[in-house]
């Protein structure tokens, strides 16, 4: 009896210990700090965490094999960086950057292969006459046609509610407002909500968000609705034109997708640059940092905007460079005319 009692106790103790060992010793994959180890770490991080493989129809295993063949044991750090950078180009994603001490890989083809459609100097000189108000990263002025104009160059510039009150109060007498987010490379999504909340009058569904639930390429959560509440401060009620170009990226891309769905708003210019994946960061054994799209944000129609948001139908246009050389921004001219004629 006693022996049995002891064996039960021992068994229990062993079970507890084995449970502890099983759990606490869960293996986390460790990669060596050599060309193969760093490459494999990079490939694995993206394989498990990148969110657009399915949408972009990328065979990541194939891509990995293609570039792994280019590795050698004795390659330099710079050579390894180039191979890794080339592999990342296959993702066609402006949110993917490999950052080392000597370089940052980036995919800008969508931008480099498109017309610029914005010249800051042209607007500043011929439309604002270098005389404009500027706060919270926003240049603003009422143009001679009594059209309000705001240029917001980066969603990284925090928008203060008080500053926005001042801007909208100043522009209140205008017949309509142009919000120019051309070449706005993005920033914080909270600034998108701050700005959009001045143009809605009730809680509004503006899109959806999803996240990866596991390392599989199809492991995603259900789409979760994103809703914005209207500001209880000054809100603008007149026609609004949004100006966009291919440089309108990331949070600015999201802003355009949200504004486009609102009544009384027209988007003019070019297709935005996209960048709808919320970026996460990770790192390699050699200390290089990798940024990548981790969590997709959809528009109100549950569509990806990773490759951009098209202008409102009938309003896609490129800047006339000949007119630009004579001091005319043809996209801005059309927006002014649109508002000046009552949104016709």
């Amino acid at each position: 009896m006693k022996r049995k009692h002891i064996s039960v106790k021992t068994g229990l103790l062993l079970s507890i210990l084995s449970l502890l060992l099983l759990s606490s010793c869960h293996k986390v994959e460790v990669f060596e700090d050599d060309p193969y180890g760093n490459f494999d770490a990079l490939w694995t991080i993206l394989d498990e965490r990148y969110c657009f493989f399915e949408y972009k129809d990328i065979d990541w295993s194939q891509v990995g094999m293609k570039y792994r063949k280019k590795l050698t044991e004795r390659m330099t750090s710079e050579e390894l960086f180039d191979v890794c950078g080339d592999m990342l180009m296959e993702l066609k994603d402006g949110h993917v950057n490999l950052v080392s001490a000597h370089n940052t890989s980036r995919y800008w083809d969508w931008l480099n292969n498109s017309p610029e459609n914005y010249q800051e100097r042209l607007v500043d000189e011929y439309y604002l006459n270098f005389d404009y108000r500027y706060t919270s990263g926003i240049k603003y002025k009422i143009l001679p046609q009594n059209v309000g104009y705001m240029y917001y160059g980066s969603f990284s510039s925090a928008i203060g509610e008080g500053n926005l009150d001042q801007i909208l109060a100043y522009l209140a007498t205008s017949t309509g407002l142009i919000i120019d987010v051309r070449s706005n490379g993005g920033g914080s999504l909270s600034n998108v909500e701050t700005l959009v909340s001045r143009f809605i009058n009730q809680e509004t569904l503006v899109g959806y968000i999803s996240h990866k639930t596991g390392p599989g390429h199809q492991d995603f959560s259900e789409l979760y609705p994103i809703k914005y509440k209207p500001s209880n401060r000054i809100r603008y009620q007149k026609p609004v034109v949004i100006l966009a170009n291919r440089g309108t990226f990331s949070a600015a891309n999201n802003f355009v997708s949200v504004m486009k769905a609102l009544p009384n708003v027209v988007v003019m210019g070019d297709i935005t640059g996209g960048g709808s994946g919320l970026p996460f960061s990770s790192e390699l054994p050699n200390g290089w940092s990798i940024r990548f799209s981790a969590s997709p944000i959809y528009d109100v129609n549950r569509e990806h905007t990773e490759f951009g948001v098209a202008p409102t139908e009938g309003f896609k246009m490129d800047m006339d460079l000949e007119q630009a050389s004579q001091g005319h921004d043809s996209i801005l001219d059309r927006a002014i005319a649109y508002i000046a004629t009552g949104g016709a």
Partner: peptide
Amino acid sequence: AFGQSYYEMFYIGNTGGIVQFGAWHNRVDL
């Protein structure tokens, strides 16, 4: 969750499933 941002949890408000039942199968402190 695996790829869930704090923006999604605490700004957008998707807090479902963020509290886990803890036992030795998923959590060991000593």
